[in-house]
Structure formats: C-alpha cells, structure tokens
C-alpha cells in the first residue's frame, strides 16, 4: 500500500481498511513511544495506542489538508493521554488514591523492564518526575525530534512559547537528574550525555 499519509488517511476514512493498516504501520512506533514512559503496564500502552488510532479515524473528517499527519496523530495521542489521566484520577479520588498516576508515582513502570544502562534509567526516571506536560514536551523533542513549530502545533501554543518551555523543561530535568544520580560520575555522565542518552533511549524504547 503506497501513497502519502494524507492519501492513506483519506482512503481509510472512506472505509479502506488496508489504507488504515498501512497508516498504522507507519506511525505505530511514534505513538507507542509517546505512551511508553507514561503508562504503568504494557497493556495500558497497548490500550492507549488503540484508542489514539480509533480517535484518529473518528476525527479524520476534520483533518486539515495542509497539516502534518504525524503531528496530528501525536496531538490526538496527547488528548487521549489527558483523557486517560482524568479517568484514572477520578477513579483514584473515588478510592482515595492520591498517587494513582503511574507517571507521577514512579511505580515500576513499563520502561523499567527494559534493559537500559544506568544513565538511561536515571533519565527515564527523571522524565517521569517532570510535570506531565513537560515530560511530553521533552520526549517529543528528544525522541520524535519534533521541531519547535511542530511542537507548537501539538500543544496548540505559539512557537516562541514552546522555545521558552523547552528551555525551562531541560533545566528542570537536569535538576531532577542531580537528585537521582548516586555518584558524581553518574551525574556527569548523564548530564553531559543527555542528548546522546536520550537518543539511545529512543532506540531502546521502540522499533
């Protein structure tokens, strides 16, 4: 199945499942990566990826022809994630569980099952300790290598605002790494190699 993303999306929205499958094949990795450091279990990740693509099909009619399909899909994933957070929080409030969010309570999330180096583990943990919007921003920046204008599209804010947020997010991340690293060597290694570690992590996390 060939064609650009836009054509595939259009074909899918008119009932061509093969086109949908082809689009899914192209973007599955990015969307999975979006959720992998935020959900608690692999099952949750799978569920959230599915919801994202189902939502994409439902809103395919509203897709603007000049937009980037990948960025659009990531925006949908972000909405799904926010919905999911609300869901979990609601349940948690009902059950009086203040730390229900896996992202925040830092439980043994799915990413801890990966074979990653110590520095990468620190980075993963540090990312999870950031506020969820910051975490998402950093992950999309490091892992999906979205540009500032693409990030602006996903978050629905001006590009300048994204640049400011990104700077602050990186500073906060370093601060968190300081508290997590056990030895000065680890700290040095993690901080100096931040970008490298982050890219290495992407290789581990996905396809």
């Amino acid at each position: 199945m060939t064609g650009n993303d836009h054509e595939l999306l259009t074909a899918w929205s008119t009932g061509d499942r093969r086109a949908g499958a082809a689009l899914f094949d192209r973007h599955f990795a990015s969307i999975r990566r979006f959720f992998i450091n935020k959900a608690c279990t692999e099952g949750e990740v799978e569920e959230l990826v599915q919801r994202s693509f189902v939502a994409a099909l439902e809103s395919a009619g509203r897709f603007r022809g000049d937009a980037n399909v990948r960025t659009w899909l990531i925006s949908i994933a972000r909405n799904i994630q926010r919905e999911w957070i609300r869901e979990v929080m609601r349940e948690a409030v009902d059950r009086v569980e203040p730390d229900a969010m896996c992202s925040e309570r830092l439980g043994p999330g799915i990413s801890t099952g990966l074979d990653v180096q110590r520095e990468q583990q620190i980075l993963l943990t540090a990312l999870r300790r950031q506020p969820i919007e910051q975490q998402t921003l950093l992950e999309l920046f490091y892992w999906e290598e979205l540009t500032a204008s693409e990030l602006a599209e996903v978050f629905g804010v001006p590009e300048g605002t994204i640049r400011t947020r990104l700077r602050k997010a990186k500073l906060d991340l370093r601060g968190t790494i300081d508290t997590l690293a056990r030895t000065p060597e680890e700290l040095d290694s993690t901080r100096s190699g931040l970008e490298g570690w982050a890219r290495g992590l992407r290789d581990k996390l996905a396809i």
């Binding site: 093969r18 949908g20 599955f28 799978e46 996905a206 396809i207």
Partner: peptide
C-alpha cells in the same frame, strides 16, 4: 514492540 504492533493491527484492521 513488534508483538504489540501485530496485536493491534489485527484487532483494528482485522488483518
């Protein structure tokens, strides 16, 4: 990742 990919693909697109 591959396993998840295949499961979802089957579920959503029936392939």
């Amino acid at each position: 990742a591959d396993l998840m990919h295949r499961r979802l693909r089957e579920r959503m697109f029936g392939e």
